[in-house]
Amino acid sequence: MVVFDKPHALNDMPFHYCPGCTHGIIHRLVAEVLDELGIEGRTIGIAPVGCSVMAYDYFNCDMIEAAHGRAPAIATGVKRSDPENHVVFTYQGDGDLASIGMAETVHAAARNENITVIFVNNAIYGMTGGQMAPTSLPGQVTQTSPYGRDVNHCGYPIRVCEMLAQLEGPEYLERVTVNSVKNIRAAKKAIKKAFQNQLDGKGFSLVEVVSSCPTNWGMTPQAALKWIDDNMLPYYPLGVYKDRSAAKEETK
């Protein structure tokens, strides 16, 4: 009996990601959810600009490549083209979602656009070679913050879930990570919920996945996963930041 194999919603093309990059894990979790919910055939995914720019090659569902940061606006168009049938997700990194595309993110959330957003936060621009991201930690050394991120000079990293939670609009916001088997299971559960919410017509559901970048963090894949625990999670605590339906249940 097969207990684990590559999900159907991923094709056989090898990922272009660096060794130990957690993008592959997150791709797989999304694909597993598409399989389990039986929605691959009606799903349209939207890839960002950044390391996961070529995500369109890996998923078996229909895919669209977006301009940098614009995925939520494109997702809005795709969803509203056929709200009953289209299942739409965006897959975006921190530079894409929280810097150049912040307006699109905030307004899609404010409209409670009925889409699923997978937000991969690894606190760095990977594709362009390791520059400071909107989520780079205070003091973090990057190519464009070579002396460490100086918050007095270039400000503080943005906590996206906490910020969006201030809005009336969004249905569901959760931060997870994928640095251990246990955390991967929890991440899968959150991603599944974010898609199920869309199927149930509940609205904007974003899962922030705290992720690693061994190459640009300059460490082994193992050390990068530990760095998530030691440095990322204290600034970006895991948890559910908004779950409107659950909150309604509680108040009943």
Partner: peptide
């Protein structure tokens, strides 16, 4: 039909891109 006031011109043209990708007139 769908009329939506976008948050910016940039968002509007990308919403157009999204519908266009699904083959509908937009």
């Amino acid at each position: 039909g769908c009329f939506l006031q976008a948050e910016s011109e940039i968002a509007a043209i990308n919403m157009v891109y999204g519908v266009a990708a699904t083959g509908k007139r937009v």
